[in-house]
């Protein structure tokens, strides 16, 4: 690779990456719902960011820089995808979502902190569902079988869990709601 960043910057890169990794991952997962695709993109982002770290001016917003690179990786990924998954995203769609995300004001860190607190308030059935879907990466059909529900019941439940988590997060983030 032609433009390798000198080694001394490796440390500052890793510190910045460590601080922002979760927020960047959340950004990519928001734009790319497929977990495996998003993971691939996050991996390639880290590589691209490392390769181009020389062009990042220290002291400026690392996350904003990283998100810009990530968005580009996402737009490219759609086409480089070899799996030929039927799931493909319209670039205009991705861009419209990205614009919406850019207008969000709460800090991703506080959001994620709030989410962690809210997860602990979930009833057991909901927790199990979240674990099955996100930790075990099971699809809706599998969850339906495992939880002895119909597919649409799983959707409705997931939708409810999401709504209650969303409410909880906004209550946690906005003091007026206390």
């Amino acid at each position: 690779m032609s433009e390798e960043t000198p080694e001394p910057s490796a440390e500052s890169y890793l510190v910045l990456l460590n601080e922002n990794e979760k927020s960047l991952a959340a950004y990519v997962h928001t734009l790319v719902p497929n977990l495996a695709d998003a993971d691939d993109i996050i991996q390639s982002c880290k590589i691209v960011m490392w390769k181009h770290f020389g062009s990042f001016s220290e002291g400026t917003n690392f996350l904003a820089w990283a998100r810009k690179i990530a968005l580009n990786q996402i737009l490219n990924y759609r086409r480089s995808e070899k799996r030929r998954d039927r799931f493909s995203q319209n670039p205009a769609f991705v861009e419209s979502i990205a614009r919406e995300l850019d207008s969000q004001t709460e800090s991703p860190d506080r959001r994620s902190e709030a989410l962690h607190q809210c997860l602990q308030k979930l009833p057991d059935a909901h927790r199990k569902l979240i674990l099955l879907r996100y930790y075990e990466d099971r699809d809706i059909g599998e969850i339906a079988i495992l939880t002895k529900r119909t597919d649409s019941a799983v959707y409705r439940l997931l939708s409810r869990v999401r709504a209650s988590l969303s409410d909880c997060i906004s209550n946690t983030l906005s003091p007026s709601a206390l």
Binding site: K22, S23, A25, A26, Y27, V28, H29, T30, L31, P33, L35, A38, L101, Q104, R111, S112, L115, H116, I130, Y134, R162, L165, S166, I169
Partner: peptide
């Protein structure tokens, strides 16, 4: 966004 935060965590 919620899906993204859950997936990232």
């Amino acid at each position: 966004t919620l899906h993204g935060s859950l997936a990232a965590s």
